[in-house]
Design a protein around this nucleic acid. Structure first.
Lengths: 146, 146
DNA sequence: CTAGTTGCAAAGAGTTTGCATGGCG
DNA sequence: CGCCATGCAAACTCTTTGCAACTAG
C-alpha cells in the first residue's frame, strides 16, 4: 500500500474534476464518453485521452473500478466506495430494458462463500453482471414468447 | 422448438465449416479472429464479416454462446453442449487465465430462487457469466497484490 | 527547472454495414 | 428464380499512442 513507486502524481484541474465527479456520483456506472460529455455540457472541456488516462490512473490506484458493460459497448467505471460499495454487491441487468439493479444483499455472501468452497473460484463482484429480465419485462416476454 | 419462423436458413459451405469447427472443438473458447485465422491457415478462406454474421446466427439459434473476454479484447464464442446443459448452468470465467468453469450445481437453483423472490428478477443462466479468479490465478494475485 | 499531464489528431483493434455477387432450395 | 448468404471495403465505436505544449512541485 505504501508508495513503492517514485512516480509523483500531480494534482491537476482535470484530474481533480474527475475525482470530484465520482465523489458526487458514488453510485453511477459511467463510460469514459459519458464523463466526457458530462464535463462538456458543464462547460468544462477535458480531452478524451486525458479522461482515459486519468481513469487508468484511478483504476490502478484502486479508487475506481473498471468493468465491461455486458453488452460490449464500452467499459464503465465506478467509484469503489469502501463504505458501502458497488465493489461488494452484484448488479442485475435486464437484457430487455437495460435497467440495472444494485443487489446489496447478505445472500450474496453466501453465494460467494459457496463458489469459493465448492468451485474454488473467487468471484469478482465488481466485474460480474447477472443478466436476465426484470419483473416488468419478464411479464411482457411471457406473453409474446416466441 | 418447431420452426416458428418462416425464415429459411440456407446451408452453406462457410456456415457448415464453422459449425463443424465447433463440433470438433467443443471446449474451445475462440474469438472471431481466431476462427478466421484457423480457416485461413487451413487454406479455406472465409470473410470476416461472414464469420461475424454466422456466429450471430448461431448465438441467436442457441447453438453457441458469446462471452466477453474479461480483459475486453474481444468476444469469445463457445459451443453450447445441450447434453451437458450449458444453457442451464452458470459459467465462471477467470479474468486472468481465461479458464471457464461450468458450474452445474444445485445451489444455483437456490440462487435463482432468491433473486426471483427478493429482487424480482429472472436470471438468464445462459447469458450470465460470473467473472473472477480461479484458484491458481488467485494465489498468484495475492502474492503480487499491490 | 524537471517530470508528469494535457490536448489534438492519428492510429489501432474489434465489429458492423452497404452493396453487388453468388448459391441454396 | 427468389431470397438468403458471402465478400470486400468502408464506416463505426471505443481506446491507445505520438508529440508538442503546458504546468505542478
Amino acid at each position: 500500500m505504501e508508495n513503492r513507486e517514485c512516480r509523483r502524481n500531480y494534482r491537476t484541474r482535470q484530474q481533480e474534476s474527475i475525482e470530484k465527479y465520482f465523489r458526487l456520483n458514488p453510485d453511477s456506472c459511467v463510460t469514459a464518453d459519458e464523463i466526457y460529455l458530462y464535463f462538456m455540457n458543464a462547460g468544462e472541456k477535458i480531452g478524451k485521452a486525458t479522461i482515459y488516462r486519468s481513469l487508468d490512473r484511478m483504476v490502478e490506484s484502486g479508487a475506481i473500478k473498471k468493468f465491461l458493460s455486458g453488452g460490449g459497448e464500452g467499459a464503465t467505471y465506478q467509484l469503489i466506495d469502501t463504505g458501502n460499495g458497488c465493489d461488494r454487491h452484484f448488479h442485475l441487468k435486464c437484457t430487455c430494458c437495460g435497467e440495472v439493479i444494485h443487489m446489496d444483499c447478505e445472500f450474496m455472501d453466501e453465494f460467494e462463500q459457496h463458489i469459493m468452497e465448492h468451485h474454488r473460484f473467487r468471484v469478482d463482484n465488481g466485474r460480474t453482471i447477472i443478466y436476465g429480465l426484470c419483473e416488468e419485462c419478464a411479464q411482457v416476454h411471457s406473453l409474446t414468447e416466441k
